[in-house]
Computed example of a mutant assay.
Amino acid sequence: MKSLFRVLLLTLISFNVYAQDLDSLSFSKAKWKKTSVAKKTKLFTYQFADSSLFTANQYVSFVEIKNHKKAPGFFIGFDKKELIKTAVFAQKYQAKAAVNGTFFDIKNGGSVDFIKVNDTIINQNREEKNNIRALHQRAAVVINNHLLNIKKWDGSDTWENTLTDQNVMLSGPLLILNNEKEKLDSVPFNKLRHPRTAIGIKPDGTVLMLTVDGRQQNSAGMSLFELTKIMKWLGCSSAINLDGGGSTTLWVSGYGENGVVNFPSDNKKWDHEGERKVANVIFIKAKP
């Protein structure tokens, strides 16, 4: 009986390793469509069809911004109360590209996570039940002199208010930090597939602003465990999850009819019209 159990266990492990190898192979073989966005900045898009990635169809798009003095700089766009589409935010700020930001109050507007812009605090964290810090308040995108980085919560109650960075957007969960995968809780938000938005940083400082579509036949969406894998496969040494679901939007100046690259899911159609209004964005444009 023990021998049979060992055989079954080894078979299961071998199958999982084989499946992971197939996924990484499928990802590595993707022939990305590449479009120039700005100096040292490109857009990459690819449709994984025939259930070829994580046994599902997936549509992945990202903007890659090189760590170069000629590349655009990073900024946080926001409104304290009003909810605005990512595309509208981007046009307002004359951006080259933008993704939706962190989590917000869909009924009353405003970020539910700490936001600081140009050394001015815009929003404080809204406390969760039992005063437990939310999973999306345990890491941050920080921007100094238009350069982007990712930081991890230090466990203190006042962490975000003591950060000296010029611009801060709390979000999460954190996926990878300094080449180490973060431990993710097995909660439904992490395990289930949804549209996702993420920021990743490569060892050389190159930044990826990425979206994965979901809730569609053409793109199932990803769990955070799957999202972590593709961020690693893309070469990121650090990565953070932003708000996803119906909020997930990647916008690029001059792209298509309305600039929306991905297929936002709020209208339940496979088109570029289903944007959800959000409270904040991360965008790039020429440095001042």
Results as ranks from 00 to 15, higher is better:
residue 122 I to G: 01
residue 183 K to N: 07
residue 131 N to R: 11
residue 130 N to L: 09
residue 173 P to I: 05
residue 158 T to R: 10
residue 133 R to C: 06
residue 129 K to T: 11
residue 134 A to H: 14
residue 142 V to A: 00
residue 118 N to Q: 13
residue 114 F to D: 06
residue 116 K to E: 04
residue 121 I to W: 04
residue 174 L to G: 02
residue 186 S to N: 12
residue 179 N to H: 13
residue 143 I to Y: 05
residue 170 L to N: 06
residue 144 N to M: 02
residue 177 L to M: 13
residue 171 S to N: 06
residue 136 H to A: 08
residue 165 D to Q: 11
residue 160 E to N: 12
residue 162 T to V: 14
residue 168 V to G: 01
residue 185 D to K: 15
residue 162 T to D: 13
residue 181 K to E: 15
residue 124 Q to T: 09
residue 160 E to S: 15
residue 130 N to M: 08
residue 187 V to W: 10
residue 171 S to D: 09
residue 123 N to T: 11
residue 124 Q to D: 13
residue 155 G to D: 05
residue 137 Q to Y: 07
residue 117 V to I: 09
residue 176 I to H: 04
residue 117 V to D: 07
residue 181 K to G: 01
residue 164 T to D: 09
residue 144 N to Y: 02
residue 136 H to M: 07
residue 181 K to I: 10
residue 165 D to Y: 14
residue 146 H to L: 01
residue 119 D to H: 15
residue 124 Q to H: 12
residue 168 V to C: 01
residue 167 N to A: 01
residue 171 S to V: 06
residue 133 R to F: 04
residue 112 V to L: 13
residue 111 S to N: 06
residue 176 I to P: 04
residue 157 D to E: 15
residue 135 L to T: 10
residue 179 N to P: 02
residue 152 K to D: 12
residue 142 V to H: 02
residue 138 R to G: 04
residue 184 L to T: 06
residue 146 H to M: 00
residue 121 I to M: 02
residue 128 E to V: 09
residue 126 R to H: 10
residue 125 N to S: 07
residue 130 N to Q: 10
residue 131 N to Q: 11
residue 154 D to R: 14
residue 144 N to S: 08
residue 141 V to Q: 00
residue 168 V to Y: 07
residue 114 F to Y: 15
residue 176 I to M: 05
residue 153 W to T: 09
residue 132 I to K: 14
residue 169 M to H: 00
residue 150 I to Q: 05
residue 144 N to F: 03
residue 110 G to S: 09
residue 114 F to S: 07
residue 185 D to P: 08
residue 136 H to P: 00
residue 186 S to I: 06
residue 115 I to W: 10
residue 164 T to I: 10
residue 116 K to Q: 08
residue 137 Q to F: 06
residue 114 F to P: 02
residue 169 M to G: 01
residue 125 N to V: 05
residue 155 G to S: 08
residue 134 A to F: 11
residue 162 T to A: 05
residue 111 S to C: 06
residue 126 R to L: 10
residue 185 D to C: 02
residue 123 N to A: 14
residue 120 T to P: 00
residue 151 K to V: 15
residue 115 I to V: 14
residue 152 K to H: 12
residue 156 S to W: 05
residue 126 R to Q: 13
residue 174 L to K: 02
residue 120 T to A: 08
residue 111 S to K: 09
residue 187 V to L: 11
residue 164 T to S: 13
residue 112 V to I: 15
residue 139 A to R: 04
residue 116 K to H: 07
residue 160 E to Q: 15
residue 126 R to F: 07
residue 146 H to D: 01
residue 153 W to E: 05
residue 187 V to D: 11
residue 124 Q to I: 02
residue 117 V to L: 00
residue 167 N to P: 03
residue 117 V to T: 07
residue 187 V to N: 13
